[in-house]
Amino acid sequence: MGSGMAEVLKAIPPPDAKPHVVMVSGKGGVGKTTVSIMLGLVLAERGDTLVESLDQAKHLLEYLSLSEVNREFKVFGRLSAMQFDTGVGVSKLGREYVWLMQRIMPGLKVLNAESVLDMVRNAPGLEEEVYLREVLRLYSYDRYDYIVVDTPPTGLTLRILNLPRLYKFWVERLISLRERIVSLRYVIARSLGQGDEVLDDPVLYKLKEIGERYAVLERELLSPNRTTFVLVSTPEPLPVYEAEKTTEFLKSLGSKPGIIVANRIIPEDIASKLGVREIQERALSKLRKLDCRRPCAMVEIPMVDSVPSSLDSVKGLLSKARIDLYS
């Protein structure tokens, strides 16, 4: 067992292509933001690093005293941070749609453009779409060597990770249908003695472009050289259960976590007094057995007197973390 968070770098390969994305995931309240900042501090020793929080609880703003969302701030040395806010992206997408509807139906302008916008803003799936676009943007954001993503709670994160696969499924089927439409248009045009301009179908081009984009994203998400998944859990049954479920999900996608973090471990003597020692031991044992890619880092962070809530308090945790590397 090594001491100090810097050891964890051994489980994160040097960036194959910029940036290497580190996805920090876990149940709400287990300390994802704290761990993201810790990893950010360590990675900033190796290269330019951005910690970006997609979690709408927005703890990062408070932690690092960031004055606004959707803007990068230099935090410390080569470390920058940004809190992503979905509201702006959701409104932008909604406005694009309403603008198009208004072009097609001018009456909408005087009728209910605002209520249509409101409906689109709240439509199921739009928020995930905005998250996905941000993840796409991050993978091509080569200003940084490393980007640490503090993800939303597990359920939403898993849906976002599943989206590229879902998009690929849809795009493939839509392409096949569209190709039939285009060939039918071509046959009709030729029969009427018209030219073959109908073969230039912008929808088909767009579909192929979208399909390629999500195929690339899926490959990048699953490539150990581009992505490292970090699972954070406290040594309690429910967060550990979620970590197990996330590991299973990653496996179904063809990936594995590279770092497991057990956060807020209560010292044994206190755990005994509180009567939670056995529960904690069982939880830790389960976390250590999670199917992890090699080399895998098991990070154990002890419970501290006060809840970390600033950059300095997170820095203080770095030397307290203990690392076990499996190769």
């Binding site: 694009e96 799936g125 839509l174 767009k206 579909l207 979208i210």
Partner: peptide, 17 residues
């Protein structure tokens, strides 16, 4: 179809829409 996909295709499908 996922909403995002529909939104992204929509500018190219004005006539069909």
């Amino acid at each position: 179809v996922p909403l995002g996909l529909a939104l992204e295709l929509s500018p190219h499908m004005e006539v069909e829409l």
